[in-house]
Nucleic acid binder design. Structure first.
Lengths: 211, 211
DNA sequence: TCCATATTGTTAAAAATTTTACAAAAATTA
DNA sequence: TAATTTTTGTAAAATTTTTAACAATATGGA
């Protein structure tokens, strides 16, 4: 894995993983790039190219073993390692996240939520406790957590990101409407919902223009 | 706008819009592509190329008028047109969405939520009523709604998507863990949260490998 | 076992995207 | 007002990504 893998490839990996999971559930134990291509609506060539960034998982004349490929992609994605997470913001979105990732998603365990409103402390969401934000640093000193989801408005997210990285957080799943400025060794994965909705809006306009 | 605009460009538009909004708030009334480049961490050239897909909004020796460019991009994105929306699923995520888009986001008005659990009917979220899912078709017959957000598990989202498009919905904001199969003239914008988290996980592994 | 078929891994070609470079034009300064 | 500076819009070059093509190889059937 010496060569730098392009972002486009990485973005597609979880989708392969999802389809392979579905195949497993269907009891299918082997699949060719062409058949997968038909299901996923991408070219067979792209599937083979993407996978070969990480190794030759297939076999000529046979295709890919579903269970094996599923495991391999899982490993590449770091699934099954058990990653502790915290969620900043116990509002609707924070609660949705705290419930969502438990939906069977592998290895990601939400250990706690933090909220600026101290009145929420004592409650729990999906069996994860809610603490006041003031206890953030103390908590991180005593618990092995690398990932934090930021589910608070942009007015406070920049400040909180600073506190998180200062306290040792290595990856931020950012739902706030702001591009976070973090040290080089910290990863940020953005989910800008309103930008996604605007994209939908653009396409809606553009499509209706066609008629 | 005869030429087909690439997906990459469209994805970047909302981000330009966001930064221009910030500039407006800061009271800055003109900006060059180079200055914006510094803020957004993209090349000035890309900014100019992107904008010129839609027209020459700038002026040599001056740059871009912030208010004007903000408006123009807003128009391109269809902002301010007032789009009615419904949300399928009144769980945590559906409620988060119903609250979220109201956060000042322009023109998108959530008129109602629908849930398979009829006991939720009668409640309201952010002043939008919750109806039983069985009333979906009746509701869409009597209300002008083009956009639906799907916030239910994949076990039911395929079926619901069929009902939505049959009832005239033109765009689906899909939060379910499934690629929806819809007619050609219907737009789908996916938000696959667990795939986003896996991407983060990949990067976390990859980064730590570097050390 | 041998032959026809299937299918990968990979190289090469094509297409798309991004960056560079610069002429044209407006703004600012002297 | 003229000269200098700034900055766009865009053509061309460079890079990246995707698709096509195919030799190598395994499978499955006769």
């Amino acid at each position: 894995m010496a060569e730098k893998i392009s972002g486009a490839v990485i973005t597609r990996l979880p989708r392969y993983y999802r389809y392979l999971g579905e195949l497993l559930e269907e009891g299918i134990d082997r699949i060719s790039s062409r058949e997968l291509s038909g299901r996923m609506k991408v070219t067979a060539s792209q599937i083979r190219q993407d996978l070969n960034n990480f190794g030759g998982f297939g076999q000529q004349g046979y295709g890919y073993n579903v269970a094996n490929l599923y495991d391999e992609i899982g490993k590449i994605l770091g699934i099954g390692l058990t990653q502790n997470m915290i969620v900043i913001g116990a509002g609707h979105l924070g609660q949705a996240i705290a419930n969502y990732t438990n939906y069977g998603k592998r290895g990601f365990v939400i250990k706690a939520l933090f909220d600026i409103n101290p009145d929420l402390a004592g409650y729990s969401v999906n069996s994860a406790p809610v603490y006041p934000l003031s206890k953030l640093e103390d908590y991180l000193k005593e618990n092995d957590v690398k990932i934090a989801a930021i589910c608070i408005p942009k007015t406070h997210s920049g400040e909180v990101a600073k506190r998180l990285t200062a306290a040792g957080i290595k990856a931020i799943w950012n739902f706030s409407h702001l591009d976070l400025d973090v040290p080089d060794d910290v990863i940020v994965e953005n989910v800008h919902l309103s930008e996604s909705l605007m994209k939908l809006s653009y396409k809606l306009n553009y499509e209706s223009e066609k008629k």
